[in-house]
Amino acid sequence: MAETTTHVAEPTRRDFLYIATGAAAVVGGATLVWPFVQSLAPDAATVAAGAPVEVDLTPIAEGQIVKVFWRGKLIFIRHRTAEEIKAAEDVNVASLRDPQADSARVKEGKAQWLIVYGNCTHLGCVPLGQQGEYHGWFCPCHGSVFDTSGRVRGGPAPINLPIPPYAFASDTKIIIGQEATA
């Protein structure tokens, strides 16, 4: 071995060949792994099914709550009455467990439409609409109470019902899964 090179530190053509071959093999190996890792990601059908969905709001009467699914998650669309909006706005935000103004939970000028995820933030049960002390939602499992803005007002739930990403396409149509661009 010692005879092949006189100076160990000096790179030779053979060293370069070793490195180039090794590097090529490593790159090839890493490339081979890529499709296997990528195969684990959500597939094309799932991604297509998870695309934003349009919901027509016209059939939803005032005071009504409609359930839709998006990406396997339950979403409530609530057409709030003037009374319910007023109740939600007249709350002292600082007194809330998860302080958030009603205006931050609806789109501007569309206060009648409340769109929230439909699983209780405690353990994910489905709360019942228009029930409980604040006539928002009441979770039958452990008694969490939500107001007409979907904010937690009692019971074990730690945070408000979260708002899914959505945007108004027109006055009567929303696209769930699309962040507002305006």
């Binding site: 933030t121 994910g124 499992c141 452990h142 019971g155 074990p156 739930a157």
Partner: peptide, 16 residues
């Protein structure tokens, strides 16, 4: 937050 809620507050059924 949801995940944290599920994690942190699991198992409190019978206490409620």
């Amino acid at each position: 937050l949801i995940a944290a809620a599920v994690l942190g507050f699991s198992a409190s059924a019978y206490a409620a």
